[in-house]
Amino acid sequence: MSDFLKIQGLGKSFGALRAVHDMSFSVGKGEILGIAGPNGSGKSTLFNLITKIPFPADSGQIFLDGKRIDRLSNTALTKLGVIRTFQREALFGSLSCIDNILVAVEQTSGVRGREAERLADEASDIVGFPKNFHNMPAAALPVFYQKQLMITTAVAQNPRVLLLDEPASSLIDSEIDWVRDAIMTLNKRGITILLIEHILSLLTGVSDRLLVMEQGQKIALGDAAEVIRDPVVIEAFLGKPQ
């Protein structure tokens, strides 16, 4: 696979704490890269550094399709199709669901009016977000539908690389199945996906490769089935055997 998204020597420190250290890896076009690691291992920080929100990296370089993107503004990154969802339900709560999708469309593509509404409807159809929720305030939705809406707004921004941060957290089994199907659907549309998830069955089920992090560093990267049998990875998750 070609290096569609290439991360080289990415690092971020907060005082003495090295949140992400010398992180390097590549993701192929249309690939799903799963990212696992214990809490506090730097997974979400890695997403923060790629999107530069809320902070950029201290060091390292990022390339998208051969073009260096780590010096671009967040607005430019979004227009290039680097889109992210949050661990928590980061929506505009008092805006209606359709307004949440519309701001995403309007911001990224610059279209307004009926064309924006058409693209918003299209994003809802792709994800399967119920249109009868469109006029409800986003904050009034149950957690599962808020997560659906968050993915819909991400899709509405026409992503080339989608960074999904724990899309299945706080969900029950049937809802996790929906997340699995949605990820596969989006991937089939050619979207390259980086997926942070604690639910290993979901992560290994959809990922082409698995990246495991501990204390801000990469400790394993490779075929998902092989990586989860790696003693270093088992130790990182379960601790050293006595």
């Binding site: 979004t78 949050f86 980061a90 911001q107 990224t108």
Partner: peptide, 11 residues
Amino acid sequence: QNREAAQLMGF
């Protein structure tokens, strides 16, 4: 409502 999410959306 959500400055961080807005920035992430490229606003």
